[in-house]
Every structure is written in C-alpha cells, then in structure tokens.
Simulated scan of single mutants.
Amino acid sequence: MQCDASKLISYCWNLREISDRCGEEESEGRSFPITSLPIFPRLTKLTIKGVPKLSLETVDGILQGCCHSLYELYLWGMESWECMPESIQHLTALTSLCLIDFGMEELPEWFGNLSSLKSLQLYNFKRLRRLPSMDAMRRLTTLKRLVIKRCPELVIKSEADYEWPKVSHIPHIEIDDRPPIHRRRPESWIQPFPINY
C-alpha cells in the first residue's frame, strides 16, 4: 500500500478509530480501534489538533508507529494533559516540533534527547514555569529557533532571568510579542508552522 508522507488528524470531535486507507476505496481499507493502532513507518509529517477524545496514551501509540521517520510534528494537546507523550523523546529524525495547549509546569528532561531538533515552538502552556535543565537544553546543539507564546508563568525577559542561560545559545528566539532575538544568522531558515486559532 502506498501512503502519503504526511497525515492530518484534525477537528475529529468524536474520533474513535483510525484508518489505514490512505486514499484507497473505503471498502478496501481497515479501521483500527484506538487501542490497536497501525504503524506508519514512512510518515514524515504529522498534525494532530481538535481531537478531544484522543487520550494521551493514544497519541503516544500513534507516535510509536513512526518514531524513525517523523521529522515534523504539530501537536495540539489539552490543558488537562500534565505530561507529554513519552514517545516524542524517541523521534530520532524530528527537526521541527510545535506543541500547543499542554498543562505541565515543567518540560521533561528527555527533551535533551531530541538531537536533530532545529525548531521548537511552545504555545499556550498556561502553567509552564520551567524549561528542562541547562544540561538538557545545551544538548540541543542543532536547535536554531525557539518560539514561546502565551506561556505567562515562564519568565524569560532578560539575561538576568533564571531560565535565560538555558536558551542563550539558541540563534533565534521569539517570546510573546517582543522583538525576536537573533544571535547569529542561522545556517538555514526553518519554516514555522502556521498557527490558526
């Protein structure tokens, strides 16, 4: 079966199963209950948003099925999710990650394992107070762009702030409506995800 390299799971308010049809006739495809998900070994881009009935465990299962191929992930969580899908840490090819609406106070330490990450965008984390440790953030050696918007508890306004040393090595930083900080010209520009609220 041939399948597109990208998938969009969006605004499916009552989603209870996922199909592997990928453009085939409906009668030929198989549907999977959320507890028995298909594997997408060639999937390179994935967007999940507007799917309130998907549990954190289900999203985790979807990500496990594409852990070596996925390089772009746009994940709209829920404020009630106080942690992230653990499978994100195993996305070895991931270069661009956009996370919206999570309820945790601190990003997990395993963020430092995302060694290919070039662009990280965090939106609407209302309780987020801390980034991972300095050691974890410094392991993100390929990170060129950091965007943090509508995260009111996370204070990174100046070099005097506690979190500043964790991000000071990143060439391009955008925080809320302040002018972007450019340290040096990035080797290649990373196209941001379009955010439509």
Rank of each mutant, 00 (worst) to 15 (best):
T141D: 10
L154M: 03
S158K: 03
F102H: 00
S133P: 10
I62R: 05
L117E: 12
M84S: 03
I170A: 01
D176N: 09
G61N: 06
P165R: 00
F125N: 06
A93F: 11
E174F: 00
R185F: 06
P41S: 09
V167W: 03
E153S: 02
W13S: 11
E163Q: 05
N113Q: 14
K45I: 11
L91Y: 12
L120G: 08
S19P: 05
Y162L: 05
T44E: 14
R139T: 12
H90Y: 15
H90C: 12
L114E: 06
M84I: 08
P152D: 01
S96F: 12
S31W: 15
Q2T: 09
V167L: 02
Q191E: 15
L107C: 01
L94M: 07
E187Q: 14
L54N: 08
P192T: 00
R183W: 09
Y123S: 10
S27L: 13
E28K: 14
V147W: 03
R16Y: 06
T95S: 12
Y197M: 07
A93R: 13
S119H: 12
T44C: 14
P171T: 02
R185T: 15
I34A: 15
L54K: 08
T142R: 15
P180L: 08
L114D: 05
A136P: 07
G23M: 05
E105C: 00
S69R: 01
R183T: 15
P152W: 00
Y71S: 08
L146M: 01
G29R: 01
V167F: 00
Y197S: 08
L131D: 03
L97I: 03
R139M: 14
E106M: 04
R21G: 13
C22L: 06
L56Y: 06
N14I: 02
I156Y: 00
L122N: 11
P180V: 14
K53V: 11
I39M: 13
D4K: 09
L94D: 04
C12Y: 06
L140V: 06
L54H: 08
N14A: 10
F125Q: 07
W164H: 04
H90W: 13
M137W: 07
K49I: 10
S116T: 12
P108S: 00
M84G: 05
